[in-house]
């Protein structure tokens, strides 16, 4: 497997048309007043992309666009309804069936809420040592302890010994998130999914966490999927950006390209609404009529058509394909 990786031909992660649908138990009331029974929620509805070793893919979108579900599918906290995920050319389905522990090692997740990422009853030392023991890293506990201390110090949690006896609730959010990243990275995964890793942290310490995540990923040549609603931060850390709307990717391309030259009307709206802290900057945010929709009872045509400022009658009739515009740029809009 490592040979294939070094050749660089097989992407580390290949996602082929994955879907995740849920069936809603209670009745659903649509915006125009109809009642749906057992409505299907198209949380992720046909997402495909590839990710090379060491690459950072940013996934942005509003809440409810399916970006978090996508993250959970990638690390197999949930199974997709259809479609497949290939890790270095092998189906994730087979990998997890054959060797679950090894699969868990290759894909790791950083969670949004660092305050709740660790069992509140365990000390930091136990959290680390249990993980290492589970994956048979290190010969004995004193050797594992040494590894942990070294790692902690490498990310500035000094003196490391003082952290080992502490419990999660005695640490700050930034420290906990660093420990969470460290623990995942210790397993040397090939793909890390970070789901809004800084959104619950104070602004003044976010940058450190983002930088640490970026640097450790580059250091280990780990691919990173960075899920966020914050466009500025995503652009800062990502090589490529995928914009999601209602369970689908509507635009994907190099981070700077997407950010400076957005093509899809939804991306344009998102970026024009992106806040600046400079009171002098005059931006004219594009207004989107209507409410952010829920992925229930999807429209027949383009999902964005009902709110799209550029929508033409034909947009509502036919679905849109994600079209290749060359140089890794994909856009799902017939008007472009």
């Amino acid at each position: 497997m490592s040979e294939e990786k070094s050749k660089g031909k097989v992407p580390v992660l290949e996602v082929i048309d994955i879907k995740r649908h849920y069936t809603q138990r209670k009745k659903h009331l649509t915006a125009d007043g109809r009642v749906l029974k057992h409505a299907k929620i198209h949380s992720v509805d046909g997402v495909s992309f590839t990710l090379n070793a060491g690459e950072v893919l940013g996934v942005i979108g509003e809440s409810g666009c399916g970006k978090s579900t996508l993250g959970r599918l990638l690390v197999r906290l949930e199974a997709p309804t259809s479609g497949s995920i290939l890790i270095a050319g092998h189906s994730a389905e087979d990998l997890i069936r054959k060797d679950r522990l090894n699969f868990r090692r290759t894909t790791q997740m950083i969670f949004q809420n660092p305050f709740d990422t660790f069992d509140p009853r365990f000390s930091i030392e136990k959290i680390f040592i249990d993980t290492l023991k589970l994956h048979k890293i290190g010969e004995n506990n004193s050797e594992r302890r040494k590894i942990v201390i070294e790692k902690l110090e490498s990310v500035g949690l000094i003196p490391a010994e003082s952290f080992l006896d502490r419990f999660p609730h005695e640490l700050s959010g930034g420290q906990l998130q660093r420990i969470s990243i460290l623990r995942s990275m210790m397993l040397e995964p090939s793909v890390v999914v970070a789901d809004e890793p800084v959104s619950m942290l104070d602004v003044s310490i976010r940058a450190d966490i983002i930088n640490m995540l970026y640097n450790t990923a580059k250091e280990h040549n780990t691919s990173l999927v960075f899920i966020s609603h914050d466009i500025s931060t995503t652009r800062y850390i990502s090589d490529r950006i995928a914009v999601m709307y209602l369970g689908r990717i509507v635009e994907m391309g190099a981070a700077d390209e997407v950010a400076t030259n957005p093509q899809h009307p939804y991306t344009k709206a998102l970026i024009s609404n992106c806040a600046s802290i400079d009171p002098r900057s005059k931006h004219n945010p594009v207004k989107l009529p209507g409410e952010p929709p829920t992925p229930v009872d999807m429209p027949a045509g383009c999902a964005f058509a009902p709110r799209c400022p550029m929508a033409a009658p034909e947009c509502c009739k036919t679905g849109q394909e994600l079209r290749d515009f060359g140089a890794g740029r994909f856009i799902r809009c017939m008007k472009v």
């Binding site: 090692r105 809420n113 660790f118 969470s180």
Partner: peptide, 26 residues
């Protein structure tokens, strides 16, 4: 639903281990 259970799953602990190590004691 708590993050630390999802986190234990993604770190590779088996469902049985999670039940006895995290769910029941908590």
């Amino acid at each position: 639903q708590r993050t630390f259970i999802k986190s234990a799953e993604s770190i590779g602990e088996s469902r049985m281990a999670i039940l006895f190590k995290h769910i029941i004691p908590n």
